[in-house]
Every structure is written in C-alpha cells, then in structure tokens.
C-alpha cells in the first residue's frame, strides 16, 4: 500500500523535511521494500559471505557549482564517504554518474573532476566506475553527480536506533550551519558578505576514532546534511521512539552563521552541513567519546549537546538554560529568509 497523495512533485519534496519523508515513506519505501532498505539508514547494511558491507547512493545538485570551501566534485566524494562513515563503515570504492548540460565549459568540468580526484586520493578511496549522460542546454544546472559508495563495516560497530536508551548522550562534531549559509551567500540573491566557508569535509577520521574508542558504546550516527541537525534528531526520535533534549547554549554555532540566521530569520538547527555528524553514545562513555573525537584534527570543537529522554517520546526539545524549552521540529520546505 502506498499512501503518497501529493498531486505533483514540488521542491519541498527534495528539501529533507516532512514532504521528503512523506515521499519516501509513502511511495519509495513501500514499493521497494526489503530488509536492508527498510532500516532507513544513511547506508544500507548488507551481509555478503559473512562480511558486513555498507552501501549508499547519493545525488548532488548544487548551485553554484563552486563555493568557498568546496565544489560539487568534492562534495560528491565527501558526501558519499560521510554516509558510509556514519554507518560505521570504511569506504572501499565509489562509483559516479554524471549528468552534464550541453554547453558546460570543459574547464569547469575538468576542475570538478580534479577536485573529486584530489579528495578521493586524500581519503584513500578509489572511484572505480562511472557513467556520463548529456542533456539539452537548460535542462540541468551545469552538472549533476550521482554516486554509489561501498564500505566495510567496522568490526566493533553496532549502530541501531533500537539500542538508543534514555540517559544516552548526544554529540555533535563541530559548529553547525557553515555549509548552508555559505551556499546561501554564494547564490548572491541575498547579497551578504562573509568570510565563511563550507564545512565540506570527510568525517571518517572522527567516526573511526569514535568507534575505535567506544565500539558498541556508539549507538547511532548521522551526518546532518539537508534539513540540518534538527531534522536528523527528529528522525532519531521517531526511529528510536524516544525523546531528545538538547541544551541550546551548548550547540556550537559560529558568529557569522548566527548573524546570517538572525538577519534572515533562520534557525541554525535547520541549516545544512556537509562535514558534521551527530552521534548518540552511551551515558557512561560520553566523556571518552568527546575526547576521542576531539583528538582528531578537525574535531576539536565537538560538543555534547544533549541527552536521550523517555518523554516526550518522538519529540526533540531545545532547553533554554533558564527554565523553558521549545519543540524543535523538522524543516518544512526549504529554509526561506524572512523579513517578518
């Protein structure tokens, strides 16, 4: 049974919020249902000849193609590696499909592929296959990239939302919102200027350090891309049937991201990241978890931002630090700047 009733596909169906969930849960999941898909992780978990493998796929659509701190090419590799990393896996190989718009300058394409190659080399994952399609001018924003990533699951990893319990703690790997605000600024519609750069990076070294240190003490991980930290925490609350309470003063946010959010009426928790993940670790291992992430270069600003609670179930609360709290909901549609 599928219960997706929306008449047409709207941009909101791709923005990572409720509409996306409605599309996935109402159409894709029921029609394509199988145990690996039904787990709804960032990567599917497969067992082949008694090896635990993780497999993920991702499409990259970004305008502009290059922005401070990254480009669609580096994003494609980082995003794929990160989906594997937060699934507790070490990447083994990546494939990439390219949809190119007729008229795209070869120099632009070359720069993107060079960026992909550089990033893949640095992480140590080969791009082992590819495919190319060219569409008419005007039918794509320059280029789109679709990837598949294959990884081998860390032997001590046991990531499963069903293992999340009240008293577990929530860790975030660093300051949030850099990517989304950088892209918003780079699009120049809003005409803001900042020194911000996207956080596009691999989180593999951090997730590896966390799993090496805690093994099954790590219960759940997600990279907080579209829809931001708020969205992944809501997915956690739903999947685990628990409450998530975060302490808002503890959330690391750079001044520039805050400034842009204040100016445009956005919530940093809804802004996309491309190099930050959120993890749930058992309460007694929390300090150890924080140390292990902070010991990795780039992980110094990791923070424990909250805890898992029993009630209110399936809800994310932001605690203010002065005796009040608010419900932190998933994003509805794309984040749009507001003036009122």
């Amino acid at each position: 049974m599928t219960d997706f009733r929306d008449e047409t596909i709207q941009l909101a169906h791709g923005s990572g919020g409720r509409a996306t969930r409605r599309l996935i849960e109402g159409l894709f999941a029921p029609l394509l249902s199988n145990p690996a898909l039904d787990a709804m992780g960032d990567a599917a978990s497969l067992e082949v000849d008694r090896s635990r493998l993780a497999m993920t796929t991702d499409c990259f659509v970004v305008n502009p193609l290059s922005f401070p701190g990254g480009c669609i090419g580096s994003l494609a590799i980082h995003g794929t590696v990160n989906d594997l990393a937060v699934s507790g896996a070490e990447p083994v190989a990546i494939t990439a499909g390219f949809v190119l718009e007729a008229g795209l300058a070869s120099s632009v394409l070359r720069a993107q592929i060079e960026a992909m190659a550089g990033v893949a080399r640095a992480i140590g994952v080969p791009v082992v296959a590819g495919d190319t399609k060219v569409v008419e001018h005007g039918k794509a924003d320059g280029m789109y990239i679709c990837t598949t990533g294959l990884g081998r699951v860390h032997e001590r990893a046991d990531l499963d939302p069903a293992r999340v319990r009240p008293g577990d703690r929530v860790l975030v790997s660093g300051p949030i919102g850099d990517h989304g605000i950088t892209i918003l600024v780079a699009r120049s519609e809003i005409d803001l200027e900042t020194d911000l750069a996207s956080d596009s990076r691999s989180v593999l070294a951090m997730t590896r350090a966390l799993l090496d240190a805690l093994g099954p003490g790590v219960k759940w991980m997600r990279d907080a891309t579209r829809g931001g930290v708020a969205t992944v925490l809501n997915e956690l609350a739903d999947a685990a049937g628990v409450g998530v309470a975060i302490d808002e003063p503890e959330i690391p946010v750079r001044d520039e991201v805050r400034g842009a959010c204040e100016l445009l009426g956005l919530d940093p928790l809804h802004v996309a990241n491309e190099g930050q993940f959120v993890a749930v670790v058992s309460g007694e291992d929390a300090d150890h978890a924080l140390e292990s992430v902070r010991s990795v270069p780039g992980g110094e600003q990791a923070r424990l931002i909250g805890e898992i609670t029993e009630a209110p179930a399936r809800t994310v609360l932001g605690r203010s630090g002065y005796g009040s709290a608010r419900v932190i909901d998933v994003l509805i549609g794309d984040p749009l700047p507001r003036i009122c």
Partner: peptide, 20 residues
C-alpha cells in the same frame, strides 16, 4: 502559513506538554 502566525507557532512549538 507563517512561522509567526499564531496557529503555526502553536503547532510548531506548543503541541507537546513541556516540563523543562
């Protein structure tokens, strides 16, 4: 409609009983 509309604000932030 707007996140500052009385209903949207209530829907978003207040549909859960909060004991902070």
């Amino acid at each position: 409609v707007s996140s500052e509309g009385a209903c949207a604000a209530q829907f978003k932030y207040a549909h859960v009983t909060i004991s902070a």
